[in-house]
């Protein structure tokens, strides 16, 4: 009798309605209730499938490589060598811009130190390591969702680490959802905002002060691009490059390329400013591999710093990222 009633429940419509009600309730639960367990459950389901996602990700990269490595206007010969040289130039340019921004930041720190005499040397030399991982999965159902890489706490990855693709393109930050072998990356286009400076594509003029490059706070548009209001005083043109200049970002991200200006429009209400639209140079989901830069902390005099297992030491923006 009891068994037949159970069977009736399992085969009847009542179970469907019970499941619908349950799903409805769970869907409306607040973040603090879901956060402790749902991400872990998702990771448990995903981990056994990583070989499949990795294989299909490699297949996708083989069939449809990212657009940055394809330039139809370029003559077809020796394109690999040209691409490698162009990437090297971009990396060196980023190193140069990073050092200029860093110098500017150090000068500010020095002023603050002199003023208060208490501030520690944040912005001084830091020990940096990098963990390389392949992009194994993207968020289903979304064009611009979370990206997963096969590097986790076992490789020294910690939440908040900067993630780079294609050498020096800032792709996003490692989110709180970090597993032993896999971690989620919040794409740069989904971060609440990124402080940047806008430089000409050929790099900044060394004779000009760093402050002459217009600053902008990039805000996501929800369409995979950013928008920002920029003071009209500085030079602005389509094709200029936005580079990270944000104290909230990891220091290794300083000077890294984020996006390219694709549109400039006047703002009627604010005549002294212009609105720009910036598109990412390369999206994380389109890349095959990514590098997570792990900042160990500020180095004291004669101190070596820790190095995580499986990570290799390198400078923040050196060529060993790829």
């Amino acid at each position: 009798m009891h068994v037949s009633r159970m069977q009736q429940f399992l085969t009847g419509k009542r179970l469907d309605w019970t499941l619908v009600c349950l799903a409805f309730l769970v869907a409306l639960l607040p973040v603090r209730v879901l956060r402790p367990w749902t991400n872990d459950v998702a990771r448990l389901v995903l981990i056994p499938l990583v070989p499949v996602t990795h294989l299909s990700s490699s297949l996708r990269d083989r069939i449809r490589p990212s657009l940055s490595s394809f330039e139809p206007s370029r003559p077809g010969f020796a394109s690999t060598e040209v691409l490698a040289l162009e990437a090297e130039v971009e990396r060196l340019r980023t190193l140069y811009e990073a050092s200029r921004l860093d110098a500017s930041r150090l000068e500010e720190s020095l002023v603050a130190l002199r003023a208060t005499s208490t501030r520690a040397g944040r912005g001084a030399l830091i020990d940096v390591a990098a963990a390389t991982g392949s992009i194994v999965a993207t968020s289903n159902g979304e064009n611009d969702g979370i990206v997963r890489i096969n590097a986790g706490t076992r490789h020294g990855v910690v939440p908040g680490s900067a993630v780079f693709i294609d050498g020096d393109v800032f792709a996003g930050l490692v989110s709180e959802d970090v597993g032993s072998f896999i971690s989620s990356v919040t794409p740069s286009t989904r971060l609440p905002s990124i402080g940047c400076r806008i430089y000409p594509a050929t790099g900044s003029d060394p004779t000009q002060p760093i402050g002459s490059a217009p600053g902008a706070v990039l805000k996501p548009t929800g369409r995979g691009t950013w928008t920002a209001d920029v003071a009209s005083a500085g030079e602005l043109a389509v094709g200029m490059v936005a580079r990270v200049a944000d104290d909230r970002m990891p220091r290794s991200a300083l000077g890294a390329r984020v996006g390219r200006v694709v549109a400039i429009a006047p703002i009627e209400q604010v005549p002294l400013a212009r609105r720009i639209e910036v598109e990412p140079i390369l999206k994380a989901k389109d890349a095959a591999s990514a590098v997570v830069v792990l900042e160990m902390g500020v180095l004291g005099a004669g101190e070596g710093g820790r190095e995580p297992a499986g990570a290799r030491t390198s400078t923040p923006l050196d060529g060993g990222r790829r």
Binding site: V26, L34, N39, L46, G145, D177, T186
Partner: peptide, 15 residues
């Protein structure tokens, strides 16, 4: 497979 990105940039799976 499709976590939601919250306003602060953190992902959350909402079943």
């Amino acid at each position: 497979f499709a976590p939601v990105i919250l306003g602060d940039g953190t992902p959350l799976v909402v079943p």
